[in-house]
Amino acid sequence: MRILSVVFALLLLPVASWAQDNAGHLQKMNAFAIKPGYHMYQSNDFFDFWDIDEDDMSSFMFEMAYERKLNQSFGIEMGIGYFKSDETYHPFGLSSEIEIENFYLSPTIKGYLPVCDYFYLYAGAGPDIYFTRGDYDLEGNIRGIAVDYSEDEEEFGFGGHVLGGMEFYIIPNPGPNQYDAPLGVFIEYRHSWVEVDDVDEDTIDIVNQALNEDFGPNNLDVGGSQIMAGLRWHF
């Protein structure tokens, strides 16, 4: 029983250290972050139909986020981000250039786990709202029929995400002549599940007419894995 008490006390030491600092960088209730990173798609119906390797569509991304602490344990973050991918493939003997562009809004409920005064872990979850634009250019011949087609399709998608990360304060106490915004560097992993329905519906209609087929439109999962690293200012 005494051993359990000692272990429990040791586990509480980081939290106690976090709480004892009643002024300075730990008491800032607002934050702004820039989050460059890399987005990785996962396999889905859209990529399977068009014979696209999801790894080829993975791309760099960028996000900005505002964060508001509710207390020292929980907070709310609002992120706005963007990423775009484009590749050329040859389904059905055609030259097909496909560009997928995504804008998203991702609010997150976050929980904080302090390790010491200058380092903490965090995790969270929340909904995602995506605006996805697909640009499809098809050229070539299908069964002797010339095809020269270009179409833009736009859809909204809704889903959710989970995330986890860590942050280290590199400038916890700016000098007296500096703006009082302690600076941290962080790394974060997020996984999202966001499916956009019928993202290629008009383009599939053209393929059906040319091939005399009855293919259905495909859903595109624009979520997947995101790895981000950046800077966060606390104020």
Rank of each mutant, 00 (worst) to 15 (best):
D214W: 05
A125L: 15
G126W: 14
F186S: 05
F168S: 00
H25A: 10
P114T: 07
M78W: 13
M1L: 05
N30A: 06
M29S: 14
Q72W: 06
S96Y: 04
P107D: 13
S96L: 02
G124S: 05
I145A: 03
F156S: 10
Q20V: 04
F60D: 09
W233I: 08
A33G: 05
G224F: 02
L220F: 09
V6Y: 12
Y112T: 15
G24E: 08
M1Y: 08
I206H: 07
L183D: 04
Q226K: 11
L4Q: 12
G81C: 02
M78C: 06
L121A: 12
H191I: 05
P182A: 06
Y130F: 15
H25C: 04
N44V: 11
G223N: 02
A123S: 14
G126Q: 04
K35T: 09
A181P: 05
G164A: 15
G144N: 01
F49D: 04
P174D: 01
K110M: 13
A229C: 11
V199N: 01
E201A: 14
P107A: 15
T88N: 04
N173W: 03
S58G: 13
P36F: 08
F46M: 12
S150P: 08
D152N: 15
P14H: 05
S59D: 14
L231F: 15
W18Q: 08
W233Q: 03
F49L: 06
N173C: 07
L231S: 03
Y179L: 09
V162D: 07
Y120T: 03
R232Y: 02
S225A: 12
F186E: 09
E188Q: 07
L26K: 12
Q42Y: 05
E97C: 00
G75A: 12
S225F: 01
N173R: 07
A181H: 08
N71I: 08
R232K: 15
Y82A: 00
A123T: 11
K69L: 10
D135P: 10
E99R: 08
K28A: 14
A146V: 06
A146L: 07
D117E: 14
N141P: 00
L94H: 11
V115H: 11
G140P: 04
I227K: 00
Y120C: 06
G175R: 11
G184F: 05
A31Q: 04
G126E: 10
E213C: 02
D197P: 04
K69S: 11
R232I: 02
T132V: 15
N219Y: 03
D48Y: 04
V207G: 04
